[in-house]
Design a protein around this nucleic acid. Structure first.
Length: 397
DNA sequence: CATGTATGTCCCGCGGGTGA
DNA sequence: TCACCCGCGGGACATACATG
């Protein structure tokens, strides 16, 4: 029943004239549609029977509609407040003509009732478009998702970029503090990401890379997404991101599932910045997955071949425009006491396609060598590595 | 050639204003 | 609150353009 506040005086008035009241209206399940006051009047007059008209209703919605429209045309009209509530509730759910008719209000009244709701809806729509655009969805895919035309999406995106560029381009530090590194030694406190995932790196590394090598709305590609810290930083810094992983963790729906050993994803836009934080060879064996195609589980030659393949296909993407950066963070690896200089080996592969731009030292924030291993190293007169190399290849714009 | 993006044009509907 | 008018923004559609 649609009315919020019944009128007691009306009930008493009706109860004194029980015999002349028209029948009330219920549906097939004895749900009251029309005649609440008449019904209450019968109760007040201690009657056990009441004349009824039974109608069929298909849905909850139809039932409510019928109740409201009957109410609006006779007896006590719904108050404007009640009408407003129903107008807002039905907007974008029912055809406008039906709403206008049931509430017996004009288009302009309906418009003023629903103004706030429509504004809110528009705002949410734009936010959703922006979100999907930042996740590197194509305009057509966004259009399908939010059920508007591609051209509309295109114009919305132009708006978004124009309105954002003023502040964000030059004030990197505006929204969130940046732990900026001015020397080529990038040491940070610890990995702060709360989601536990082996091999996750401090997000400050990506933050600094974005500062030095990218601008707002650049496309950042991270095929070893892990726990998604790249996404968090990109969101903060207004960068578009395409983050994938062989086995995305369920908690992060915005990490795409993709096996980078199959090549670059075919829906990847031309990236401006590629970030590689690969699980390297047997150091992390089995810690990511048992999948044979996981880079953590393959042998050294195959690992290097994959790195080479990524560099090659990334360069192909940049064939036309000759701009973009590829960064890789990687440390040495010890195999039965024998040191494998992975950074050098990776450098050898990547430099065949892209020139080295810059190289940083990134110390591990946690203890990486056990006591026994340190002793063994001392005995064998060997020094132990304690940092990763962060190498940036590519071309400036 | 296929896919994705931008643009020109038409037109609906919304907002705002006014008077009843 | 409603009817009416009017101006304009934004959405739909078709199509041109860009890119790999």
């Amino acid at each position: 029943y649609p009315r919020f506040n019944p009128d007691p005086a009306r009930i008493i008035e009706y109860s004194e004239n029980i015999d002349v009241l028209p029948p009330i209206k219920v549906n097939q399940h004895n749900i009251l549609i029309d005649g609440y006051h008449r019904w209450k009047a019968h109760e007040t007059a201690k009657k056990t029977e009441i004349p009824c008209e039974v109608v069929q209703t298909e849905s909850e919605q139809e039932l409510l509609m019928m109740a409201v429209s009957l109410n609006a045309t006779h007896g006590l009209q719904l108050s404007p407040k009640e009408k407003r509530t129903y107008a807002i509730k039905w907007w974008n759910v029912l055809p406008i003509e039906d709403i206008l008719k049931s509430l017996s209000i004009s288009q302009s009244t309906f418009d003023t009732y629903t103004k706030d709701k429509r504004k809110q809806y528009e705002k949410e729509l734009n936010e959703r478009v922006r979100e999907l655009y930042m996740q590197c969805w194509t305009e057509q895919a966004i259009a399908d998702e939010v059920e508007i035309d591609q051209s509309v999406v295109n114009r919305k995106i132009v708006d978004i970029m124009q309105s954002a560029e003023i502040g964000d381009l030059h004030n990197f530090d505006k929204n969130a503090p940046l732990d900026l590194k001015v020397y080529k030694l990038w040491q940070f406190q610890s990995a702060t990401n709360t989601v536990k995932h082996f091999g996750n790196i401090p997000p400050e590394i990506i933050d600094n890379l974005l500062y030095y090598f990218t601008k707002p709305f650049d496309v950042i590609f991270d095929p070893f997404g892990g726990c998604g810290s790249t996404i968090d930083v990109c969101k903060k810094r207004n960068r578009r991101y395409y983050v994938s992983d062989l086995n995305p963790i369920p908690a992060r729906v915005d990490i795409r599932k993709h096996d980078i050993t199959d090549g670059l994803p075919n829906d990847l836009p031309v990236p401006d910045f590629v970030f590689l934080d690969p699980p390297y060879w047997k150091q992390a064996e089995g810690k990511y997955s048992d999948d044979d195609t996981d880079l953590a589980n393959i042998d050294l030659d195959e690992f290097l071949r994959q790195i080479r393949g990524i560099a090659k296909s990334v360069k192909r993407k940049w064939r036309e425009r000759k701009s973009g950066y590829l960064a890789i963070i990687i440390g040495e690896y010890k195999d039965n006491g024998k040191i494998i200089d992975l950074p050098m080996l990776c450098y050898d592969e990547i430099k065949q396609f892209l020139p080295l731009v810059c190289r940083y030292q990134v110390p591990y924030s946690t203890q990486v060598h056990g006591g026994a291993f340190v002793k063994m190293a001392k005995d064998k007169k060997e020094c132990l590595y304690i940092n990763r190399d962060l190498m940036v290849f590519g071309y400036g714009v």
